[in-house]
Amino acid sequence: MDYILIIISAVFVNNIVMTQFLGICPFIGVSNKVDTSMGMAGAVMFVMVIATMVTYLLQQYILEWLGIPFMQTVVFILVIAALVQLVEIILKKVSPAMYQALGIFLPLITTNCTILGVAILAVQKEYNLMESVVYAFSNAAGFGLALITFAGIREQLDLVNIPKSMKGVPIAFIIAGLLAMAFMGFAGIVK
C-alpha cells in the first residue's frame, strides 16, 4: 500500500467529517473560533495517533492471542478512555505549556467518535502498524482541515443577519452542507 494514497484519501477524498460523518459533535460544538478549533484539532491528532497505535498492538498481540477478538469494542473504548486520562496527567507534568493549549479539550475526546472509529477502521482495513499510524495521522489532519475551515467561515457568520430560527446550529449545518459539496470535488483524485 502506498502511504501517499492513504494520506490523500483520508485527508481529502474520504474526509472523516465531511464524507464519513465522524466527529460531528466537536465539529459543530467547538467551531466558533479559529484558535479553539486549532487546539481541538491538535489534541485529536495527538490522541488519535497514540490510540490507534495502542489499540492496533492490543488487537494483534493480545486479543487475537487470547482468542477473544469479540471483546474488541469493550477493550478499545476502555483503553481509549484510560489513555486520554494518562495523556492528560503526563502532559500536565512534562509540558505545562502544551497542557495549557490542549488540556481543556482532552476530556471531550473520549466521546469523540473519530478516535474509536479510526481505531476500528484501521483494524478492519487490515493495515500494518506503520500504515495504521499514517492512517490515524492523516484522518486527524482531515479532521483538523474541516474543523478549521469551518471555524473560519463561522467567525464571519456572526456578522451576518440571518433569520432568527436559523441562528446557531441550523445555519451551521447548512454551511457544513455547502462545505461537504466542496469536498465532493476531491473525489476521483486518487486513481
Binding site: M18, T19, F21, S165, M166, V169, P170, I171, A172, F173, I174, A176, G177, L178, A180, M181, F183, M184
Partner: peptide, 13 residues
C-alpha cells in the same frame, strides 16, 4: 453527504 447536512439543518429549524 452534503444533503445530509442540509436536510438536518432545515429539520432542526
Amino acid at each position: 453527504p452534503p444533503g445530509a447536512f442540509l436536510a438536518l439543518g432545515f429539520l432542526i429549524m
